[in-house]
Nucleic acid binder design. Structure first.
Lengths: 243, 243
DNA sequence: AAACAAGGAAACGTCAGACGACTATCCTCC
DNA sequence: GGAGGATAGTCGTCTGACGTTTCCTTGTTT
C-alpha cells in the first residue's frame, strides 16, 4: 500500500491557475486578479501565490508589471510546451489541438548497451525494460517513443504493465519513483526506417529527435527516452521569460 | 541620454548564484548554503533568496529538499540552455565549451513579407532592418542567424549599428527596447544552400532551425530570428523540473 | 555488538503583516 | 486643452514566526 500524500500547496495553486488560463477564465491578454485577491480567494498566503506566479512568468504564460498588475500573455495560445514540460508528449499533442492516445507496440526485457549503462549508472549487460510506443493525435500516429528503464526498479512482472500509461505514471505506479527532473537533448535527424514505417510520409525528410533522461530527486537515473516526431505536424514551441 | 536603472534585487542575486554554480564555487552535487545563510551573506531577505532559488530549481540547476537542504544538480554540466534562455545563442556556444563571437555578414533595409508583417504586427511592405550574421565557436562558423526588426523602432541610421552585438543589446541600445519574453519554435530541416555555404559539412544533412520571436513587456513584437545550426557540433539540451 | 526507537537540530515550506517602488488614473490648476 | 501633482492600486522586498520534513545523535532494547 502507499498513501497518496496531499500535494504541496504551491502545486495545487499551480494547477488551478494553469487550468484557468488554459480554459480562458483569465483570457489571453487580460489582467489577472491581484496577488492579494488570489491569496484571499484560494485561502493561501500571498507568498505561495507569488511562488506560483513566478513560475508562470518564467514559462512565459503571464507578464508581471510592478505598479500595474499581472497579465496573461496575449500569445499564450502560440506556446505548447506550457508548464515547461518539454518531455510531456501527451501535453505536446494536446496543446497542438489534438486528442492524444498511446498505443503500446512492445514491452520486453533486454540487456543494456554500453552507452545506456553509463547514462543509467548500471553495469553493461544489466537487464532493462524496453518499451516501444506510438503516440497518436486524433488517432493518427505522430510520435515514436522508445523508453528503457532499469528492470531492477520494477516490483511487478512486466506482463502487468499498462503500456498506455504516461511514463511518469508507469514509474510512479510500478517503481514507486517520482520524476523530479528531466534533461532533454534536442536533435535533428533524417527519418529512419522504423520511424518511417510507423509514421509514414516522405521517406527522406528531417525530423526531430528528443533524447530525454529522467531522474529522481536523489539524482538516480530512472529512464531514458528517444522520441521521434515530425515537426511539420506537431509544433514544438517554447516561451521563456524572466520577470 | 538614458539612465541605467539599478537592476532588481532578485536579478542581481540570480547572477551571483548562477555565476557561483557555473564557476564551481558550489560544486555539482554539493549542498549549497542554506537560505538563511545566503540571505545573511548577500544582505537581502530570505524571500528574495527563495525567489531566485525557485527559478534555479525550475531550470533544473538545483534540487531542493525540504528538511534537508538545497543541492546543485549533479548533472548541471550536461545542460547548456542554462538560465532558460534558449534563444541566447552566445550562451549556447559558451556552454558547449567554446568561445563565442559574432560576425556580421549583412545589415540592410528591405520590405516586410506578408508573413513577417503579420507576426510583427505591421503592414505588408513596411520597412524592416535585416541582419544576417554568423556565430563562431572558437572561430569556426556554427550558427547562421537571420534577424528582421521593424525599421521604425530604430533611432539611429543603420550604418551605425554594431553587427557584432547580441540582439538583446542591439534592441536595447538602438531601440531603447528591452526583450521581455521570447517564443521559440524548434524545427528540423534539411540544410539549405546558404547555410551550407557558410557552415560547410555534408550538403545533405538535417539541421536544427530555431524560429524566435522577441517581444517587449507590452507584447510589442520587437524582432524575428531564424537560426540554423548543426546539432552534431552544438548540443541543445534543456533541464526542466518543478520542485 | 547490532538493531531499533526517541529526540533534537537544521533546513525548506507557509503564513502574516508591513513598507517601499512603481504605474495608471483622476483631478486640479494654469 | 494641456501640464502637473495627488492618489489609489499592485507588485517587490523585508521581517519574524511557525509548520513540516529530514537527518543525525543518543539511548535503549534485543
Amino acid at each position: 500500500m502507499h498513501i497518496i500524500q496531499p500535494k504541496a500547496i504551491v502545486e495545487q495553486v499551480d494547477e488551478i491557475l494553469l487550468e484557468r488560463i488554459k480554459e480562458g477564465v483569465y483570457p489571453a491578454g487580460s489582467r489577472m486578479p491581484s496577488e492579494s485577491e488570489l491569496s484571499e480567494e484560494l485561502g493561501v498566503s500571498r507568498a505561495s501565490i507569488r511562488t506560483v506566479l513566478a513560475k508562470l512568468a518564467i514559462n512565459g504564460l503571464i507578464i508581471r508589471k510592478q505598479g500595474d498588475g499581472t497579465y496573461v500573455n496575449a500569445r499564450v495560445k502560440e506556446v505548447n510546451a506550457h508548464s515547461g514540460n518539454l518531455w510531456d508528449l501527451t501535453q505536446l499533442i494536446e496543446s497542438n489541438g489534438y486528442k492524444p492516445s498511446i498505443q503500446s507496440l512492445a514491452i520486453e526485457k533486454r540487456k543494456a548497451t554500453e552507452k545506456e549503462a553509463i547514462v543509467l549508472a548500471l553495469e553493461p549487460g544489466e537487464d532493462l525494460l524496453f518499451m516501444r510506443r506510438l503516440f497518436l493525435a486524433d488517432g493518427k500516429p505522430v510520435i515514436l517513443a522508445n523508453n528503457v528503464s532499469p528492470l531492477s526498479l520494477f516490483r511487478e512482472p512486466i506482463e502487468s504493465i499498462d503500456g498506455a500509461l504516461h511514463i511518469r505514471d508507469i514509474l510512479l505506479q510500478y517503481c514507486r519513483q517520482r520524476i523530479w527532473f528531466a534533461i532533454t537533448d534536442i536533435r535533428s535527424t533524417m527519418i529512419g526506417k522504423e520511424a518511417h514505417d510507423l509514421l509514414g510520409g516522405d521517406p527522406q525528410r528531417a525530423i526531430l529527435e528528443l533524447q530525454v533522461a529522467f531522474y529522481a530527486k536523489d539524482n538516480l537515473p530512472l529512464a531514458l527516452g528517444v522520441n521521434y516526431f515530425d515537426d511539420s505536424f506537431l509544433r514544438l514551441s517554447l516561451a521563456q521569460a524572466w520577470n
